[in-house]
């Protein structure tokens, strides 16, 4: 495997190798000396066409802990904001000798295009493309789920995960449905019907419009960010109604099983999809997701950039 574009490209073994490698690397991160020499002399470019400080610094920290040289290329204040095309940006990075390009782009498929259009030879890692996918987010979510619900080992067979919110526009939901299914979890999507894509019935998951029913026997509840401007496009009538029907508040949290964890990919709208009482509760693993994100991204770069002799097998 040269690129990480979609979790659909990962077999169960690929995914487990990434998670196991991440677990190994997480142990190193607990040491006082966090750095590994693995990617010394390699260049990783963080190519961000959308603002996402948290994802960018996570990739940056991961690359630096592997001793790679990191270049942050943000669309704002660069030639991109003056109308330079994705192709010309890619050619520039190619000329500068980027070994890996971590791309965040507002257009679905932009990483796929970067990897396959013949513009560059670098490894491409999708850090979120439009409303398509965000594979490393799904991997860090799987890592977090495994740690809390399966003692950090094996796959997620039988784990019940309910993903709640704006599935239609969510790259996190798409990547998670595919990856968690591959790992054996039972996924339920819960949202108002307006925020589920036409065609969701073909996905390997269950769909519910009723949050109370959907979380009743969940082992994990993942809340997705809902943007307030969706109201203007008639996806739902008001923030208050959304919050009442699909928000996770203390009252609903009290109905969860004792072991159930609450997740959120961030950034949160406190008081909208998730109440502050929930976000800051014992069940919340939201902060831990962030630190797991660094380990998982280290694992992905380590495996893709030839840290291991075998790489992640089996995929073109």
């Amino acid at each position: 495997m040269r690129h990480l574009l979609s979790t659909a490209d990962l077999t169960r073994d690929d995914a487990l190798l990434i998670l196991d490698t991440a677990a190994e690397l997480a142990r190193i991160s607990d040491r006082p000396m966090k750095k590994l020499p693995t990617l010394r002399g390699r260049t990783v470019v963080n190519l961000f066409f959308e603002d996402s400080t948290r994802t960018r610094i996570s990739f940056e920290a991961a690359a630096k802990r592997l001793s790679a040289d990191v270049i942050n290329f943000s669309a704002k204040g660069s030639s991109v904001s003056k109308g330079e095309s994705l192709k010309d940006t890619a050619l520039t990075l190619q000329a500068m000798g980027a070994d890996a390009v971590v791309i965040r782009h507002g257009a679905s498929g932009a990483p796929h295009r970067l990897a396959n259009a013949g513009w560059i030879e670098s490894t491409v890692i999708n850090a979120g493309d439009g409303t398509h996918e965000h594979p490393t987010q799904a991997l860090l979510d799987a890592f977090t789920l495994r740690r809390h619900l399966r003692d950090g080992e094996g796959d997620l067979t039988g784990v019940r995960v309910t993903i709640v919110g704006d599935v239609l526009h969510s790259r996190v939901a798409r990547s998670n449905v595919l990856l968690l299914h591959t790992l054996g979890a039972d996924v339920t999507l819960c949202a108002p019907p307006t925020l589920l894509p036409v065609g969701v019935d073909t996905w390997p998951c269950t769909v519910s419009y009723d949050l109370d029913a959907a979380i009743a026997d969940a082992d994990a509840v993942m809340m997705l960010r809902v943007q307030l401007e969706r109201m203007n496009a008639a996806y739902f009538p008001s923030a208050a109604e959304y919050s009442r029907r699909y928000g996770l508040d203390a009252q609903r949290m009290a109905t969860l099983a004792p072991h159930t964890i609450v997740m959120h990919p961030g950034p949160m709208n406190r008081g909208m999809e998730i109440a502050a009482d929930v976000a800051d509760s014992e069940r919340s693993v939201i902060v831990e997701q962030v630190s797991n994100g660094v380990s998982v991204r280290m694992a992905v770069m380590y495996l893709l950039l030839g840290g291991a002799e075998s790489g992640i097998g089996g995929i073109a």
Binding site: S108, R171, R174, P197, G199
Partner: peptide, 18 residues
């Protein structure tokens, strides 16, 4: 709208043209 709306647009994350 970017492509035909259905299972494929749902998977590819492209806005549907129903």
């Amino acid at each position: 709208a970017q492509m035909n709306e259905g299972a494929m647009s749902a998977r590819l994350g492209l806005a549907g043209w129903p």
